[in-house]
Amino acid sequence: MSAAPEPSSLERYEETCRAAAAAVISAYSTSFGVATRMLGRRHRAHVRNIYALVRIADELVDGVAAERGIGPAEQRKLLRRLEDDVFMAVESGYSSNPIVDAFACTVRDCGIEGRLIEPFFASMRTDIRDDADRGLVGFDREQHAAYVYGSAEVVGLMCLRVFTREERLAPDEAALLERGARSLGAAFQNINFLRDLADDSRRLGRDYLGADRQISETDRLAWVAEARAQLESARISLPLLPKDARRAVRCALELFEELLDRISRTPAAELYTRRIRVPNAVKLGLAVRAGARTLLERT
Rank of each mutant, 00 (worst) to 15 (best):
W223F: 15
A145S: 12
L295K: 11
D85E: 14
L177P: 01
A104H: 00
L157I: 07
A290R: 01
A73V: 11
A65N: 08
P98R: 00
C251E: 03
E217D: 11
A19E: 12
E142G: 07
R48G: 13
K77S: 13
H46A: 14
V154R: 02
S264N: 08
L271A: 03
V47A: 11
L253C: 12
V224D: 05
R168C: 04
L240P: 05
R275L: 08
A20I: 01
E217H: 04
S95A: 12
V64N: 06
A52K: 08
H46W: 12
R81I: 01
F120L: 15
D130G: 12
A234S: 09
A22V: 06
A152Y: 12
L160R: 07
L160G: 06
F188G: 07
V282C: 09
I117T: 04
Q143E: 14
E142C: 05
S95E: 05
I236C: 05
R48N: 14
Y149W: 12
G185D: 06
R235M: 08
L271K: 06
L78G: 03
L157H: 10
A187F: 02
L184M: 14
R161G: 03
S183V: 01
A145E: 09
D244V: 00
G180F: 00
M88K: 13
A122T: 11
E142L: 07
V24K: 00
V148G: 04
R48Q: 15
M124K: 02
A234W: 05
R247C: 10
L53H: 05
R213I: 01
G205P: 11
I191E: 04
V282E: 15
L295C: 09
A170G: 14
D207F: 10
A248D: 02
L204P: 09
Y51M: 03
D58C: 09
E14D: 13
G156S: 06
S92T: 15
T273E: 13
I99M: 02
T16F: 09
R18Q: 10
R228L: 08
L240S: 07
R141N: 12
I99V: 15
A66K: 14
Q143M: 09
R161A: 15
P242W: 05
L53D: 00
V61F: 04
I276A: 11
A198I: 02
R44E: 01
V137S: 10
L238K: 08
A57F: 12
A198R: 15
I236N: 05
G291Q: 03
V86T: 09
R115Y: 04
I70S: 00
M124V: 05
W223K: 11
S8V: 05
V154I: 01
Y208E: 05
C251K: 01
R168L: 08
Q230S: 11
G71Y: 08
L136Y: 06
A66W: 04
A181W: 09
A181G: 10
Y28I: 00
S31E: 13
K243Q: 14
D261N: 14
A292I: 11
R168D: 09
F256N: 15
R228M: 04
E166C: 10
A57T: 04
